[in-house]
Amino acid sequence: MAGLTAAALAAVGFLAYQASANVPETLAAPSPKTTSTAPPAGHAAEHKDKKHPLTVPADSGTGARVVYALDDRRVWLVNSKGKMIRSFAVMPSSVNPRPGSYKVRSRTGVIKGSDGVPIEHVVLFAVADGGVPVGFSAAQDGSMESPDRKLKTGGVRMKRADGNAMWAFATVGAKVVVVP
């Protein structure tokens, strides 16, 4: 019985830790070790504020959508009520789509990527300059390496768990918004 109680307490503690680690900064209690992120005087032009990963870019529209921020190398999955349901880092391809609104054109479960890497959960949504198809995918080996800039590839790579979430969320016709 004591072993069961200890296991239950460990599970509750782990879940509490996870919940506290995912609280947006605006809702979290200030930490005594918090330091200012303001740039030094005279350096404002060099400083670029990074958005909080749980904050969907304001210029990404409304409704259910996948938001891909090129500069932040991040994706948000947003439900029909405008609530972010998942956010994750991605590795951009060597060719990027222009900012704008797109729709998922096709999906492929498993295939070899244009860089030769076996990939899964391919969600194509755009064609970039030069006719390069652009889409989200996850490498089957879990890698997210920087693409070879000599190759003209359009695969935006993500971790496999994020690829699973993308696959479940972004069906054919789903809205994809690309922001700078």
Rank of each mutant, 00 (worst) to 15 (best):
L4D: 13
A6Y: 11
A6G: 04
A6D: 13
A7S: 14
L9Y: 06
L9K: 12
A10N: 09
G13S: 11
F14G: 12
A19C: 05
N22C: 09
V23E: 12
V23N: 04
E25L: 15
T26Y: 12
A28N: 11
A29H: 12
A29K: 12
P32W: 09
K33Y: 14
K33F: 15
S36E: 05
T37R: 14
G42P: 02
H47S: 15
K51Y: 07
H52E: 14
T55H: 07
T55F: 01
T55L: 11
T55P: 03
P57T: 03
D59T: 06
G61C: 04
T62Q: 12
G63D: 09
G63M: 04
A64P: 04
A64H: 04
V67E: 00
Y68M: 12
A69E: 03
L70C: 05
D72Y: 01
D72S: 07
R73S: 13
R73G: 06
R74V: 05
R74M: 13
W76Y: 02
W76K: 05
L77M: 14
N79D: 15
N79T: 06
K81N: 15
K83W: 05
K83D: 15
A89V: 09
A89E: 11
V90M: 04
P92N: 10
P92F: 01
S93R: 00
S93W: 01
S93I: 02
S94N: 03
V95W: 00
V95Y: 00
N96V: 04
P97L: 08
R98N: 14
P99R: 02
G100T: 08
G100H: 08
Y102P: 00
K103G: 02
R105G: 03
R105I: 06
R105P: 01
G109W: 13
G109C: 07
V110K: 15
V110N: 12
V110Y: 13
I111T: 15
K112T: 14
K112D: 11
D115Y: 05
G116W: 07
V117Y: 04
V117A: 09
P118L: 04
E120T: 05
E120V: 02
V122E: 02
V123N: 01
V123L: 02
L124N: 09
A126S: 06
V127E: 09
V127C: 00
A128L: 02
D129H: 11
V134H: 02
V134P: 00
S137P: 02
G142V: 06
S143G: 12
S143K: 09
S143C: 10
M144A: 11
D148S: 06
K150R: 14
K150E: 11
L151W: 02
K152I: 03
T153V: 15
T153N: 07
T153L: 04
T153Y: 00
T153F: 01
G154V: 00
G154F: 00
V156Y: 00
R157K: 13
M158Y: 07
K159M: 10
A161N: 13
N164P: 05
A165L: 04
A165C: 09
M166L: 15
M166Y: 01
W167L: 09
F169H: 05
A170V: 01
A170N: 02
T171L: 10
V172W: 03
G173S: 04
A174N: 04
K175S: 14
K175Q: 14
V176F: 02
V177W: 03
V179C: 07
